[in-house]
């Protein structure tokens, strides 16, 4: 029997993997993918809360749909900035983008 706890544990693990990847990867595109993973982990928690705790009002599912839209916009904007950097720098490695310090 799969309970709410299973979903929440999966969500928490995915969130941690996403956070670790976003902080440790060098490639900007990979960082963006891990950011997506973090958001989707939260979405999973939201939807399972919605299913188990408020099955009638489904607020969590509506919340998750809004979160998806916002994330799509964020990643789109992020890729636009990456393109902008790539055109002048020919790199997608985050540690080679280092003009601003302290």
């Amino acid at each position: 029997m799969i309970t709410l706890n299973h979903f929440l544990t999966l969500g928490a693990i995915l969130f941690c993997i996403g956070l670790f990847g976003a902080l440790s990867k060098r490639n900007i595109i990979a960082i963006m993918m891990f950011l997506e993973l973090m958001t989707n982990a939260v979405n999973l928690s939201l939807i399972s809360f919605s299913k188990y705790i408020t099955p009638i009002t489904i607020r969590g599912q509506i919340f998750a749909i809004f979160v998806m839209v916002v994330t799509a916009a964020e990643i789109g904007l992020g890729l636009a900035i990456v393109l902008c950097i790539y055109r002048s720098r020919e790199t997608t490695q985050i540690d080679e983008v280092n003009l601003l310090k302290w």
Binding site: A22, I28, I31, L35, E74, L77, G78, I81, V82, C84, I85, S88, I94, V97, N98, L99, L100
Partner: peptide, 10 residues
Amino acid sequence: SSEAGLKYLI
């Protein structure tokens, strides 16, 4: 500017 935007976004 692009670099600041990227850092801020991530």
